[in-house]
Nucleic acid binder design. Sequence first.
DNA 1: CTTCTCACA
DNA 2: TGTGAGAA
Length: 124
Amino acid sequence: MSVLPIGTVMKLTDLTARQIRYYEQQDLIKPVRNEGNRRMYSLNDVDRLLEIKDYLDDGLNISGIKEVYKKQEQLEDERKKNLQKGLTDSDVRKILQDEFMNIGGLKPPSSTFDNPNNFHKFNE
DNA sequence: CTTCTCACA
DNA sequence: TGTGAGAA
């Protein structure tokens, strides 16, 4: 995946080598090293660097950007946990929607409980 | 020639 | 974050 040397990344992102290495120190990107200790970047690294530049323009500082990715990972972890429980994203959305309807005292769609498949989702 | 690390009149 | 030194 990682095949771009820092020189190429500099041109692609319009960032200085100093900045690119600094963002790595802040754990915002994780390039791999080749046999000559040279940093090799992936296109995902380039995308992230571009993102970082945007966040910086929006007035966000390094620690602020760190927290953005931190919460992003947290949401990603929960998505995986639900997946392990056999729930897809659309399942979760449907459950949440049905719960809101019930709270509002509205009659849930007949299809929701008619399907025995959905039944034990509410009993686990 | 390119990149790396380290240090700072 | 810039920049220059010395090595790889």
